[in-house]
Design a protein around this nucleic acid. Structure first.
Lengths: 220, 220
DNA sequence: AGGGCTCTCCCCCGGACGGGGGAGACGGTT
DNA sequence: AACCGTCTCCCCCGTCCGGGGGAGAGCCCT
């Protein structure tokens, strides 16, 4: 293991936190804390100057928060470091923000020292993302959308009716649906009527709305 | 470090993969491969019997795939193991599926041996999630929704027209919109006409669809 | 003072839509 | 054999919708 040490910069507005992190990381062979920053603005300039491999970035900081600092660092450098965002609460919307701007990882402040060390090592070596239980929230968030609560009426629709509803949701008229299905317009009409009855709505527009709202169809 | 070893079960339909994983993991102090399974069904029963700490679960397996096996294990045991889902491609929709059913982590087969070991250690110790670059996709997916691409025609709508479109998207008729806005039905009608023209659609249903698809309004 | 935009409201008209019936054909279940 | 569900198609009828005109009041900007 004669690999060059992983160079780390700490960005946190509280001196005690920086010190604690430095003690933990410097005690590890192969890890080296090369710089610190107490504000987002400082973080940006320090990182530009020192070009570390990894940055531990606090979210809440004066002047510029960790998210925007991350954004600026990643967009302004040709070989940006891997940035691990650190926060106290896992249900922060910061999680999503951090991922959106391109952070490589996410870490809770209450993480164990070993987790911290392994997080830095992993992030430094690959583009792997290391996560605390915060990702549970992300996963839950995603799950909340994907398997949308099964539409109660969807099960009652026949194959044909479901097909008609999908066509309705593309903005087709009864005649166009009939053409598409190669059936008479009267048939399309009665299928539409069945859909309206089973979804318990008044007109095709409300049916389409119900389809979107229930997750029967999804945007894009 | 006199902690009891982390007990691992491997589930993969290819013997060579299982062997490779076993070699890597058994070489690590503190890790112990206690069982293997070649199908999803086997995985479920083996895990129930051996009660390991961690399961490395392949996605593609005969009989029952890794996702459903994960689901069954997690729902059927009082203290289920942490399950790390393993796959070959990072852009699989399996990533989302795995998270949805409650997998603790996600790993690529081409991950380095050290990453694998650390993944197992991390997952065994905490409820942390360890991720490959696959999470990039998840993050991107999430980001793709949040700042929805601004509708091109939304800017051209007047305040009143936008209001009318939102009401249209709740399934109201022209008369109901008029009542809601405290204006004559002719007025609501002409606003609707303006919306249809500016959104370049034929009828109110297509307008509502455009509103959903463009992100002008969002489900739920 | 004039012009442009928005909001308001009116007319007529044709077509699409939705409600109410009914009915034949097919397949599966009892 | 009788029944039910599904898909297919037909009739009539009233309403809502969208297209085409036009027009007056208020506003802001030049």
């Amino acid at each position: 293991m004669s690999a060059p040490p992983v160079r780390v910069v700490l960005a946190d507005d509280e001196r005690m936190v920086r010190t604690a992190l430095r003690v933990i990381l410097d005690a590890e062979p192969g890890l080296e804390v090369v710089g610190e920053a107490a504000t987002g603005a400082q973080a940006v300039s320090v990182v530009r100057e020192l070009r570390p491999d990894v940055v531990l970035m606090d979210v809440r900081m004066p002047e510029i928060d960790g998210i925007r600092a991350t954004e600026q660092i990643l967009s302004g450098m040709e070989t940006p470091p891997r940035i691990v965002v650190v926060t106290t609460f896992e249900n922060d919307s910061y999680v999503y923000e951090a991922l959106r701007v391109g952070a490589a990882g996410f870490l809770l402040k209450r993480a164990a020292a070993e987790d911290l060390v392994q997080a830095v090592r992993l992030v430094a070596r690959s583009d792997c993302l290391l996560f605390p239980s915060a990702v549970r929230a992300l996963a839950a968030e995603h799950a909340r959308r994907q398997p949308a609560p099964p539409p109660p009426w969807a099960a009652r629709l026949t194959e044909r009716e479901a097909e008609v509803l999908r066509l309705m949701a593309t903005g087709l008229t009864n005649a166009e649906i009939a053409d598409r299905l190669r059936v008479g317009s009267a048939t399309a009409k009665s299928h539409v009527a069945a859909v309206l009855a089973k979804t318990d709505v008044r007109d095709r527009t409300q049916a389409v709305i119900a389809a979107y709202e229930s997750g029967f169809i999804t945007p894009r």
